[in-house]
Design a binder for these strands. Structure first.
Lengths: 209, 209
DNA sequence: AAGGAGTTTTACCAATTGGTCAGAAAGACG
DNA sequence: CGTCTTTCTGACCAATTGGTAAAACTCCTT
């Protein structure tokens, strides 16, 4: 009797699980390239190999797909920072964070661009998560870094801006990938190895007291 | 007799000059916030205080407005790097460039976001300018930096990635402004002064041999 | 004041958009 | 096999989109 969509909740059947995944993957492709308003359900449907009404059988609306993507993303996105260990060796911890974050740009560029698009447009759909989860985590880890800084384990730096700089430098290689590759066209076919070396020396020098 | 639009060329009358400027400014607002496909002529018209057909009297199409904005932008955008003086004191030159570029993020955030949006979407409309003008200028200045590096005036760094890092770090404060402000909400009402201090020490340490 | 160029508006269009609905097809299961 | 649920489709819709046509208005020049 109840043939209505699963209301974007727990998928029950195998088919639902598979198709929801297909849709989200296709949507990630499309949204990350065109932004929310620039993407159409038809594009997503085509990319997913499904019909448009079929998309809307699995998700109640275009926005619901986008929201689902963003909320899944936020967790993955924070993982590298979460792993920063207050008990570890300070400089090594931060350098590992940089390496992990650069790895995310290399391996999940679509996610990075989706996030960038959302922020660029004023973060209408994830303001809350930024002021909440993200800010809390950042404040917590900034405090850890401040401690390291204060006891002389690393140089004195503004912890919040240190974190911003790690984000900026690593995400740049995902979000501005096209530009980077166009400029390096005749030098490096894959910018990431050189980027890793460069960022390592940069943060090493910055953090050495 | 000829009442057709001025074909996006030199404005002749005062009214044309004024209205074209108004339109471009409104379009910059809208495009920088929503991207090309996410923006509508109605939004731009409303922001400019004109009717939609009136917009299309001054510009032949939505795309023409966007292209005009981008080509105007490219020049302004390259100015800070152009000003990097091969004859100047190396470290001071680079630090000045960083300061100029950060100033652009502070004073022209809309332009920065317009550019970011375009790159994020694969740079369909400025590929040529990137491979041409931009790449040429970057290669030229990278060579200058390489020279400084080689003769020991600054530390050994990959010049291209140095330039990328300056872009990434400075543009971050324009493109991700919302995020930065949300996270610093209870600390800094204006992130830029602290950002300038932070970036100065970062590049100072990086470039000191 | 008249004429014509330059400017603006009203009314409109075809295409695309997100979304709905009734029913057809496909499984699942006894 | 038959029945019930889940999955999918074609036809459709109202709203929005970029863009046009032509008439109307404004303003400068003579």
């Amino acid at each position: 009797m109840n043939a209505s969509p699963p209301a974007a909740k727990k998928p029950r059947t195998r088919i639902q699980k598979k198709n929801r995944k297909t849709i989200l993957d296709a949507a990630l492709d499309v949204f990350s390239q065109n932004g929310f308003r620039g993407s159409t359900l038809d594009q997503i449907a085509r990319a997913a190999g499904l019909s448009k009404p079929n998309l809307l059988y699995y998700f109640p609306s275009k926005e619901a797909i986008h929201v689902e993507l963003l909320s899944c993303l936020m967790d993955t996105w924070l993982d590298p920072l979460r792993a920063l260990d207050p008990a570890g060796e300070p400089k090594r911890e931060i350098l590992s964070y940089v390496r992990r974050k650069l790895g995310m740009s290399r391996d999940y560029p679509r996610e990075s661009r989706l996030f960038a698009n959302e922020i660029l447009q004023g973060a209408p759909r994830i303001r809350k998560a930024i002021r909440g989860e993200l800010k809390d985590l950042v404040d917590e880890k900034a405090e850890v870094i401040r401690g390291w800084s204060a006891r002389g384990a690393i140089a004195r730096v503004n912890p919040h801006h240190l974190i911003f700089s790690i984000w900026a430098l690593t995400q740049h290689y995902a979000d501005f990938d096209v530009q980077v590759r166009l400029i390096l066209e005749d030098r490096e076919s894959d910018p990431f190895p050189e980027a890793e070396r460069y960022l390592e020396t940069l943060f090493d020098k910055l953090l050495t007291p």
